[in-house]
């Protein structure tokens, strides 16, 4: 049912066999006669079948051979829109067990018009094809390409916050079709907006000189630490022993590894034997140990000693001459015998 308003016409014909379609009476000469689709009316008879008033601007709606003014027709017969509740005049979309204005019938997810593109019923909702595919993909644990809306079966390419089939893009530098190994590069460092990002194939990306972190092997886009001949994310440049980041604090290198001050000295022996602290100034090294210069002393009487002081050793401890001579004779005899047995290490040092 799609009633079309019809223009009312007036015209002169032969009077003899003409009669009003409504009252059946003939017409007076010179009387204005309404002619519509071959039927004739007295002007006062050409009225709405419901309200008996003339048609406003001559527009009427016809239903089952009766004519109605726009208002009464709508009240009696016009469908209501399932969304806005208004009468639907003109094109009516009948779908989902209701009537709709064409621009009221929209996808429940993306709000795109469905009138011309068709729709898919999904769990009681009307969805466009793309949204339906997305819903299905999520159900399958897959992504939907943001460009072609197809399912992404292989690895997706993430770009500017959306996912795509990699083959929709080419490398910004060499133009080769990309695969999922392509790298997104922030083209304006310091700007957070990823609208500025660009895509590069792995080869071009490597050639661009973007530093790769020696620890995590990912590109470094923030601050770069350069040490041990490699680049590092600030938070990935850590002590080889305690794994805490240096964050700009001094580090010590040994055999290609970096250490914090504490662990470097702990591992490589530059802690003073007496104070057990990192030796800041000159180091006194002897007997497999190290001392702060001012902490090097006789192990028995605590008298300070220096480079020139002659000292004896037992159990790899230093003893000044005075103390050594006070040790039990039998002990000294044993020591002497021992040192004779191992002639490489001569005492006094």
């Amino acid at each position: 049912m799609s009633p079309t308003p019809m223009p009312s016409l007036t015209g002169g014909m032969s009077f003899d066999n003409m009669m009003c379609s409504r009252c059946g009476e003939g017409f007076e000469p010179h009387e204005k006669i309404v002619n519509s689709t071959g039927e004739l009316w007295h002007q006062q008879c050409f009225v709405c079948a419901q309200c008996f008033r003339p048609f406003k601007e001559g527009i009427f709606y016809e239903f089952e051979n009766r004519k109605y003014c726009e208002h009464d027709f709508q009240v009696l017969f016009a469908p209501c829109c399932g969304k806005c509740g208004e009468f639907v005049i003109g094109r009516v979309i009948k779908a989902m067990n209701a009537n709709w204005h064409p621009n009221c019938f929209r996808c429940e997810m993306c709000s795109g018009e469905l009138a011309d593109s068709g729709f898919i019923r999904n769990a009681g909702r009307a969805l466009c094809h793309e949204c339906n595919a997305k819903v299905k993909a999520v159900g399958l644990g897959k992504y939907v390409c943001h460009k072609c809306h197809g399912l992404i079966d292989d690895q997706p390419l993430k770009f500017r916050g959306e996912v795509y089939h990699p083959y929709h893009f080419i490398c910004t530098a060499c133009g080769v079709e990309l695969d999922s190994s392509a790298r997104e590069v922030r083209s304006r460092p310091g700007f957070a907006n990823n609208d500025m990002n660009e895509l590069y194939c792995l080869r071009c990306h490597d050639k661009m000189g973007i530093p790769i972190c020696g620890a995590c092997r990912r590109p470094i886009e923030e601050r770069v630490v350069t040490a041990l001949g490699k680049h590092w994310h600030v938070e990935h440049f850590v002590c080889a022993k305690c794994e805490k980041p240096f964050f700009g604090h001094r580090h010590y290198e040994k055999k290609g590894l970096a250490y914090c001050e504490t662990h470097y000295h702990q591992l490589f022996g530059n802690l003073c034997f007496v104070c057990n602290q990192v030796i800041a100034g000159d180091v006194f090294t002897a007997l497999n140990k190290a001392w702060c210069v001012h902490h090097f002393a006789c192990s028995m009487c605590d008298q300070k000693m220096n480079q020139k002081t002659k000292f004896y050793e037992f159990d790899l401890k230093p003893a000044c001459k005075k103390c050594y001579e006070k040790l039990p004779i039998e002990f000294r005899r044993r020591l002497r015998r021992q040192h004779e047995a191992t002639p490489k290490k001569l005492v006094p040092a």
Binding site: V274, S299, M300, C301, D302, C323
Partner: peptide
Amino acid sequence: LEILTLAN
């Protein structure tokens, strides 16, 4: 006291 030496 941090260091106490009572040797010999």
